[in-house]
Nucleic acid binder design. Structure first.
Lengths: 155, 155
DNA sequence: AAACAAGTTTACGTTAACGTAAAGCTATTG
DNA sequence: CAATAGCTTTACGTTAACGTAAACTTGTTT
């Protein structure tokens, strides 16, 4: 059990370049084993990669993410002083994330009001100009590869 | 009413350098007026600065933030096609923020479990070594003078 | 008047996070 | 067997978001 992955498998699964994955290893976020000279990634490596991506989406630097990994790894073997330091750092992170939550809520509200404003402007346009023959492109061609399904929000 | 601000006032209020604020202007996030050659910031400018900082905390690039500002500004004067484009972009942003919310929740859970794990390790330490003097390894070359629990800097 | 504080422009330097060749190993496939 | 596919290392290039320094203007204080 617990299968392994090649670098390109992971790359395509998470929509990264192999360059990035090797770079993450260089920054000590990943520690794949080798078969010959070829990198072999375990499920644990895969999880780490997933966490890395998640951290990046939250604006963490690779160095910060590495720090969190190290904290986690050394939790078992830490001395008393080490453990207290870890608790302090974890506390800092949690506080920062709480702040982020608040930020997101604020921005969501602003975007929501922008959307409403936008729809109202559209309605007014349609009232003043009932039926012109203006043909439009319908689809805005902006394909955003990395982002989630865009129909998620509404209300 | 609606007072004005100097660049250094804003800098100290939001804990930025004046360099940053001028840079934001260079990137067209701010448009302060001038008295002579000196920049004069309005309350509206201040709000924009606040939003900029908030956006940065969420991992937006300055270019993205600028885009959002422009969307907002042009909402009133937009054509039908423009308005639909805006709605689409707003939708993308909202979806991305929803994803971020989920990410944060996940990471919060992980940090929480890390904290618990940490506290347990501490408890075990205190049970095995009720009030011993100093023993075991734990002498890591580097002498750390200030052992105060100073809350670690986050950044 | 001289010095100081606060502001300005110009411009080169720096760091993070990759992108983009170039050149070489290695296994398999037509 | 030669070519292709996939992997590797090495190394220089690029972009964003400022930092830092120099040289200058303008107003205020001593």
């Amino acid at each position: 059990m617990s299968r392994t992955y090649s670098i390109s498998e992971l790359a395509s699964e998470f929509d990264l370049t192999t360059r990035s994955i090797r770079f993450y290893e260089d920054q000590e976020l990943l520690h794949p084993s080798r078969r010959g000279q070829t990198r072999v990634y375990s499920s644990k490596d895969r999880v780490r990669l997933k966490l890395t991506i998640r951290g990046k989406r939250l604006g963490f630097s690779l160095a910060e993410i590495r720090e969190l990994f190290e904290l986690w790894d050394e939790t078992r073997s830490g001395s008393k002083k080490q453990l207290h330091l870890m608790l302090s750092k974890i506390g800092d992170r949690r506080a920062a994330l709480d702040q982020q939550m608040k930020d997101i809520t604020m921005v969501q509200l602003e975007l929501e009001s922008a959307e409403i404003r936008c729809r109202q402007a559209l309605e007014e346009l349609l009232e003043k100009e009932p039926q012109e023959k203006q043909n439009e492109e319908e689809r805005t061609g902006t394909s955003d590869k990395a982002s989630a399904p865009s129909s998620a929000t509404m209300h």
